[in-house]
Each structure stands twice: as C-alpha cells, then as structure tokens.
Design a protein around this nucleic acid. Structure first.
Lengths: 195, 195
DNA sequence: ATCTAAGTTGAACGGCGTACAGTTGTCAAA
DNA sequence: TTTGACAACTGTACGCCGTTCAACTTAGAT
C-alpha cells in the first residue's frame, strides 16, 4: 500500500468507469482497505487528481530545445500532448476543471514551449499569448473530440479524422504566430511599465 | 414558484458562489422552500444546468444569414459567443462537462454557422470540421481565459487583452478555413461510401 | 358540497469526501 | 528480551449531496 499503488488503482478505476467511478470508497474497496486508509497516502481527492494529471503529462514526448525546426518541434509537442490527452479522455474534464495542470511536468512543458517560441522570435507578451492559444487549442480539441458539438452529425468523427483536423488547424495557428511575432524584442527598460 | 423563478435563483447562486454553490438545497433555501419542492418544476439538476446553459446561449447576438460578409459574420458570431461565455465564467465548466450544449439555442447557432460557412464554400465534411475548430477555439478560450495555464505569469492577462488574443487567433483560423475550403462540392453518389 | 389535481412537505435512502480516536503491527533502542 | 515510538490501518461518525415517496394542503371545476 503505497502512494504509487493508490495512483495506479485510481487510473484503473478511471479507465474502467470514467470520472464518476473514481470514488475514494471505490478506490479503497479495490485496494481492500477502508476509505480513510487512503488518507495516509494521499492528501485529498483533489491532490490525487492533480497527481494523476501530472503523471499523464509525463508521458508527453518532448522535442529537443535546440531542434533545427522550432516551429515543427512545437507542432510535434502539441501533437504528442493531444495524443496523450485523447488516450485518457476521462482525465481531460478534470484538466479543464483545474484550469490546466500546475504540477512539475506541466511547468516543464510550458517552459520548453516558451523556449521554442522564443527561438521563433516570439517572446514577452506575444509569447504568453501564443502559448495560451496553443494550449487552448490542444486541450480544447482533446476535450471536445468525442462530442457532436451542437446540431446534427450524430456520429462524431473518428479519432484519426479528429487528429487530422486538429493538426490542420494547429498549422493555421502556428502560421499566424510565426507570421506575426509581434514581439517587443528589446528587453530592458523599454517594456518595464507597459502593463 | 415557477420554472423561471427557479432558473433565476439558480443563476444568482451561480454568480454569487460559482458552480459549487449551486446546490438543490441552497436553491430551495433561497426560494424559501424545501429541496424536494424543486422537483415539481425541474426534472433534475442536470436538466436545470442544461436549461441555464441554453438560456445563456440565447443572449448571443446572431448575424443575418445573408450578411454580405459571411466570414466577418462568423467572426462576429464567435466574438459574441465569447463575450457571453466570459460574462458568465461559472457556467463554462458546466458547458465543457456537458460536451457542448444541445438545447434549441445551441442547435440554432450551429445551423446558422453552417449556413455562413456554406456561403464561404465550406460544406460537408469540411464544414463539420470547421465548425468544430471554431467552437473549440471559442469555448476553450472562454474556459481558460482566467487561468495562468502552466508555468510563470502569475498574473493572468486582462479581459481586454484576452479578447484581443482571442480575436487575433480566431482570424488565423478563419483565414485557414477560407483559404482551404476542401469541400466535396458535388453532393450525391460521389461521396456516399467515403466514410 | 364534493372531487380532482397540482403544489408542497417531512422523512428518509444511499452515496459522497473526510475527520478523529483507537487498534494493530513493525522495528530500533535499551 | 523487553519497551516504546511510530506508522499503517480500522470503526464510527459528521455533514453534505441529489433524489424519492407517501402524506398533506389547497384551489378550481363539477
């Protein structure tokens, strides 16, 4: 009975029955313990979910910061993130509810992205905006990839079709970001008091 | 004590304390009634949330289908949707959880959008994809507009800055959609068995 | 005056996350 | 070998949740 065992059982519950099935009581039952025992290994259910989230992000394949093609590297990074998220669709709503993960892996990915964007000449305010756009697009697509979204089309598109659609629109966004770096490229006093 | 009164009180609770504060018991208390009374006017809490969602969508300003500038009309439609959603940020997580509203107003907006896209030459599979991209972008931005999203930047951007960022990236997406209609413009037997 | 149907209520069910006091088992220090 | 500290675990319970059901009230139609 360890922290890791709890996480693993939680993941199993999530896969088998979705978020609704992940209950401290069900979790305890699966581990053959009483519910309160879990609190010796997990601070709270919220913390447990955060741990699951960050574990998920650990599976994202990260490009090298010095990749010769920064824009392509970013595309690959987002594609990998998308793949990881859609592979575990049950966690995505949790992700949204938390307003984005804040664990060490999330931070690492964010910094890597900033580095790659900077190599494209996108930094400062523009960098923050660009990261936001890309993350919204990726998480949003992952979150809504299995729904029919409004009228008609009762049959949601296949996973492969969704992925193609994701990559295509991701390309549009990257093109826009690259075409308009809009960066205040001179750091220092020039941008100190600009909001 | 009517359906409308319940909805109104629910909205008030939502504004005052977020989703967590919207409880059947709290709702009943605010209306000076016992909790079970609510079930004479509302089928379930889920249905109540759906009603709130669709009510929200009723506030979206819709362009005319025969607007001389379809692309601009779509941009306006998404901008209005974004404004409405960000004005009631508490409902956006609910929106996400429901995987997009399915009420009559949502259907109406979806159909209007399809009509406008069609006038841009985007129809069929491409139309569905385009609608998906635009909805993801809009709802995603509204959902994540108040978070810091990963590393750094403890101060989230202001509402106006977020809106500018939203509109700018929306423009990139619309440009991509318009530049590559990718439509199978000949309906009929040619595309019957193409999945 | 009587019947009916809608609105409301008290009480309860089962489930949730979680707290607290007490029991067990393990293992180092005496 | 005994003792004692400490971590893991349990029984029990609290307060919350959404929801149901039989009973009661009451307004309007017959």
């Amino acid at each position: 009975m360890t922290h890791a065992a709890v996480l693993e059982a939680a993941r199993a519950l999530l896969v088998e029955g979705g978020v609704g099935a992940l209950t401290m009581r069900a979790l305890a039952c699966r581990l053959n313990v009483t519910p309160n025992t879990l609190y010796s290994h997990v601070e709270s259910k919220t913390q447990l979910l955060d741990d699951l989230l960050d574990d998920l992000l650990a599976a994202v394949a990260v490009p090298r910061l010095d990749d010769p093609d920064p824009l392509g590297a970013i595309a690959g990074l987002m594609a990998s993130t998308y793949a990881v998220l859609t592979a575990h669709p049950d966690l995505v709503p949790v992700f949204l509810e938390r307003q984005g993960a804040r664990g060490p892996n999330a931070v690492r990915l964010g910094e890597l992205m900033d580095g790659l964007l900077e190599r494209e000449g996108v930094r400062g305010r523009a960098g923050v905006d660009a990261r936001r756009v890309l993350i919204v697009h990726t998480i949003g697509f992952a979150a809504l990839t299995t729904s029919s979204l409004g009228s008609g089309e009762p049959k949601p598109p296949s996973g492969a079709a969704s992925r193609r659609n994701f990559m295509r629109s991701l390309g549009w966004l990257l093109a826009g970001i690259a075409a308009d770096p809009g960066a205040v490229s001179t750091p220092g006093r020039a941008r100190t008091r600009k909001l």
